[in-house]
Simulated scan of single mutants.
Amino acid sequence: MTTTAPAPGTLEAPAAPASRPKRRRSPLPYILATPAIIALLAGMGYPLIWQVWNSFREYGLAQQFGQAPEFVGLDNYIELLTGSEFWGVLAKSVVFMAVTAGATMVLGIGLALLMKHIAGWARITLQVAMLLAWAMPIVAQMTVWNWLIDDRNGVLNYLLSLLPGVDMIGHDWLESPLSFFAVASVIITWASVPFVALSVYAGLTQVSDDVVEAAQLDGAGGFQMLRRITLPILRPILVILLLLQMIWDLRVYAQIELLQGFGAAGTQYDLLGTYIYGLGIGQGHFGVAAAAAMLVMLFTIALSWFYVRELLKEDAQ
Rank of each mutant, 00 (worst) to 15 (best):
M1K: 07
T2Y: 08
T4N: 07
A5E: 05
P6L: 14
E12V: 12
E12H: 02
S19A: 15
S19P: 13
R23V: 00
L32S: 05
A33W: 06
L41V: 15
A42V: 15
M44Q: 10
G45Y: 09
L48I: 09
I49Q: 06
W50H: 10
V52C: 09
R57H: 14
Y59K: 02
Q64H: 03
P69V: 08
F71L: 09
G73K: 07
D75Y: 03
D75E: 13
N76Y: 07
E79P: 01
E79Q: 13
L81C: 05
W87Y: 07
G88T: 09
V89G: 13
L90N: 05
L90H: 03
M97H: 00
V99M: 11
V99K: 00
A103T: 13
G108F: 11
A112C: 12
L113H: 06
A119S: 12
W121E: 09
R123H: 04
I124W: 05
T125S: 12
M130P: 02
P137S: 11
Q141D: 08
Q141C: 07
W147M: 12
D150F: 04
D151P: 15
N153M: 15
L156M: 14
L156N: 02
L160T: 06
S161D: 12
M168V: 08
H171Y: 15
D172F: 04
W173R: 10
L174N: 04
S185G: 15
W190Q: 07
A191T: 10
S192R: 06
V193K: 04
V193W: 07
F195R: 08
V196K: 09
G203E: 11
A214L: 03
A215R: 09
L217S: 06
G222A: 12
Q224W: 07
L226H: 02
L226T: 07
I233M: 13
L243E: 04
W248S: 10
L250A: 13
Q255H: 10
I256E: 10
L258V: 15
L259M: 13
Q260T: 13
G263T: 09
L271T: 03
Y275R: 06
G280D: 13
G287E: 08
A289H: 12
T300N: 03
L303R: 01
W305T: 11
R309F: 01
E314R: 13
